[in-house]
Design a protein around this nucleic acid. Structure first.
Lengths: 337, 337
DNA sequence: TTGTAGGCGTTATCAT
DNA sequence: ATGATAACGCCTACAA
């Protein structure tokens, strides 16, 4: 008898002596006689019938009851938390989440998007890779597919997006250092320099300097794409002839790099403010002052935007900014040496 | 003119003057005349045709070219990295990844699994929630659906699983503390106590004590389900009449809790070894000694197991153990006070 | 090399 | 309240 076929709606119908459509009606709360409904449900249980969502989604012109999400990296808790925020919001609507990670590579991102489109997902959510371009999505937008960008805006496409208050948050964090007396403040930022979040946060850094009448010194701006690189960048800053007395780290990896470098160098006299909170921030010595983002809120806001679009909201593309919050813990309040 | 319909294979065929089947052959590298192929491809480009994967997956008896993955929490970098390991391995085979998070709740896990089954995923990968039961998956296993459990084994179902060397790793970490002179070692573990990883790691702790002829003192075993709870658990241990001189933390959250508590209490004289590495471990004071897991390897190994099963491997269920590695950084080498 | 017929499992439409 | 028929977009099997 071999592997037996999984029961279909027709099998259930035959068991009861009705038509597939009647079974369908039972399962979709259509108009069915009470007695018929019960017999159908009994047969469903007896046969262990499970509706086939693939087939259901195949109905005339219908889309897959799934949302495609592209993030740069799943292991990064920032993006993981964003994805978690998306998933719970989306599941509440009976949609499932399909994810892929682009590894920050535009080509991979595009092929993931192509796969999702081929699956006819109901909506697309993308954290764009650094150098990606989204003009190829124009026809999809025109056709009405909801597309929302997270954390970073799209390139070459007018579409909804949800971002953190990068520039404002960064300005606040640097101003905090200035208030505590610092006049030479190093910036350890993302790579590449063209990355949206890096540009915005650097701009916030400059805003703060401008606001205090301090000069912008290019020598104080360094770059590192991972923890080790950020640590090296930090060491370069500290070994300048006229070194900074404080550091502003432009993301979570840069913060870790700065903290690691200072720890290795045994320096506890350099003030630090990091962009994005870290789980162990409080346990550091001194505890790390940060400009905290709210990744779950970014994910949730983006998901809500998608759901509104799915509900028919055709208003023009909107940018949502999720506020940041300065959390003073000690490292940002150190006075200049 | 309204939203125009997306072009189908038939539209392309009509454009060229052939049959849909011929277009299908072109797209699947079937036998087609060179000249016909070129005309078809031209029409594909012209119309912007994209194959419909939903329909393709609907073929007789076919399954969705997707893998369903259930993890307890997306924001936890451990599980995020596991998922990343799965995703890259799986994508290399043209499969996409569908994820859901169970929030460590058996009910939610089961409903996610039901959704994935309804979608007819090609395989199921599950990090089981603490109190879940998988007997309901027996029929799927019998029917040949590849099912692999990660990080924790299944309950009530004989199936493949990939776990870390919890007991052995834990034994090694505690033995390390003993070698450095400690005789009273506290254990800060997961909750609930029935959780597989917690049980295994506690057993490793006891193995190490036994191996050194040290007594097992229940008063030294505490529990915390998140960072704050673990911090409180740590404080309880430190305020015992005969307090431990060293702590073994049973997971990453417990490690953070222990570190946070010691930092708040200003205690730098308590030795600590944590299970699972932390990004900032090196920047702590003292730097944190850990038993590192390899979450990406866990994910990759599980994915490879799934792929073998998809390739027809029908051998009996196998358990794969991914080794851990002790990384001595300082906190685990402190002598007893 | 290319075409025809049929079906996957479901739901919409129109009858009865 | 229920049934018959067709259709969604693709692929397999067989035929020409």
């Amino acid at each position: 008898m071999g592997a037996m076929r999984r029961p279909t709606m027709t099998d259930v119908a035959r068991e009861v002596g009705v038509t597939a459509k009647t079974v369908s009606r039972v399962l979709n709360d259509g108009p069915v006689a009470v007695e018929t409904r019960e017999r159908v449900l009994a047969a469903v249980r007896k046969l262990g019938y499970q509706p086939n969502l693939m087939a259901r989604n195949m109905r005339v012109g219908a889309r897959d009851a799934a949302i495609g999400l592209v993030i740069p990296e799943m292991g990064n808790p920032f993006f993981g938390t964003v994805a978690g925020g998306v998933e719970s919001a989306v599941r509440a609507r009976g949609l499932t989440l399909i994810v892929g990670s682009s590894d920050e590579a535009a080509g991979l991102e595009q092929s993931l998007i192509a796969t999702f489109l081929a699956r006819r997902v109901s909506a697309l959510m993308v954290v764009p890779a650094a150098s990606s371009d989204h003009r190829h999505l124009r026809s999809e937008r025109v056709a009405g597919l909801p597309i929302v960008f997270l954390d970073r805006p799209s390139a070459g496409l007018r579409a909804d997006c949800v971002v953190s208050a990068n520039r404002e948050g960064s300005r606040t964090g640097v101003a905090h250092l200035i208030v505590h007396g610092h006049r030479r403040i190093g910036f350890v930022g993302d790579v590449p320099a063209s990355l949206y979040t890096r540009r915005e946060r650097l701009q916030g850094y400059r805003d703060a300097l401008d606001g205090a009448g301090l000069p912008y010194d290019r020598a104080l701006v360094e770059t590192g794409h991972d923890v080790e690189a950020a640590a090296r960048a930090t060491m370069r800053l500290l070994s300048l002839a006229d070194p900074p007395t404080a550091l502003f780290a432009g993301n979570n990896l840069a913060s870790m790099g700065a903290v690691v470098a200072l720890s290795r160098a045994g320096r506890k006299d350099v003030a630090v403010v990091g962009f994005d909170d870290l789980p162990l921030a409080e346990a550091l010595d001194p505890p790390l002052t940060v400009v905290a983002q709210d990744p779950a809120a970014v994910g949730a806001a983006a998901a809500e935007m998608v759901l509104r679009r799915l509900d028919g909201d055709r208003s023009r593309a909107r940018r949502t900014t999720v506020p940041t919050r300065l959390i003073a813990r000690g490292s940002g309040e150190l006075p200049p040496r």
